[in-house]
């Protein structure tokens, strides 16, 4: 899922201070799971903003709404009849949701309430870690299900490099060497022969280097 982090409250206050009617718009998907932009976070942010501006002697209208998703037309349409009641929207969705809402409602300023971090897993309570960089050409089949693109600092495809010590990466003693994990996993799978095969040059044109990406599926189009 997409992992996001709440923006500092000071930054949000700074962004919204010039607007009188503000809608806090949450998203029920990834940002709810990583506790950055769901219904609960919408309630907290709205309450905090109301109190802050009240204490400053400013009367502002702070609305709350949480959509099923902000990356889909049908759910974003749900706010069409209320969007004109507000001068600005603080979207607690990931960068995708903020942009999609901004494209849909051209005349309303859309402000991000979270920082979108990565595609990751919910490893433990309060711990989210990156697992995928959406490079567009998956190599997991030959790396024992462990991604060298997202988990190796150098994105080495035939590793490990010389910076791997005792299973840790040279960038930090807390970061596992992805290639150590790959070797351990290939050993467990009894597939160490695969490790000997040199990986071909990867097609990076499907990565961000090739510009914004699009998926077109004629078979599911209506």
């Amino acid at each position: 899922m997409i992992i996001a982090e709440k923006k500092p409250i000071e930054e949000i206050i700074q962004e919204v201070k010039d607007f009188d009617r503000i809608l806090i718009l949450g998203c029920n998907e990834c940002v709810t799971v990583c506790e950055a932009g769901g219904k609960k976070e919408v309630e907290v942010l709205a309450s905090v903003l109301r109190m802050y501006f009240m204490a400053q002697g400013q009367e502002k209208t702070i609305g709350e709404r949480t959509l099923e998703r902000q990356c889909d037309h049908e759910y974003l349409e749900e706010i069409r009849n209320i969007i004109d009641d507000y001068d600005a929207v603080v979207s607690l969705a990931c960068g995708v949701g903020v942009q999609f809402a901004a494209e849909k409602y051209l005349t309303t300023p859309l402000l991000p309430g979270v920082n979108t971090i990565c595609l990751g897993a919910n490893e433990d309570r309060g711990l989210w870690t990156e697992r995928c960089q959406a490079c567009g050409t998956c190599v997991l089949a030959r790396t024992g299900g462990i991604c060298p693109v997202s988990r190796c600092a150098k994105r080495v495809l035939n590793g490990p490099c010389g910076g791997s010590t005792n299973g840790k990466c040279e960038i930090s003693k807390d970061t596992d060497c992805a290639w150590q994990l790959i070797i351990d996993r290939l050993k467990a799978l009894d597939k160490m022969d695969d490790y000997e095969k040199v990986a071909p040059v990867k097609d990076w044109s499907t990565d961000r280097a090739g510009g914004p990406r699009t998926v077109i599926r004629e078979d599911v189009k209506i």
Binding site: I9, E10, V48, M51, Y52, A55
Partner: peptide, 8 residues
């Protein structure tokens, strides 16, 4: 922490 930040 939040109440400190918003001056309450």
């Amino acid at each position: 922490g939040i109440l400190d930040k918003i001056g309450v």
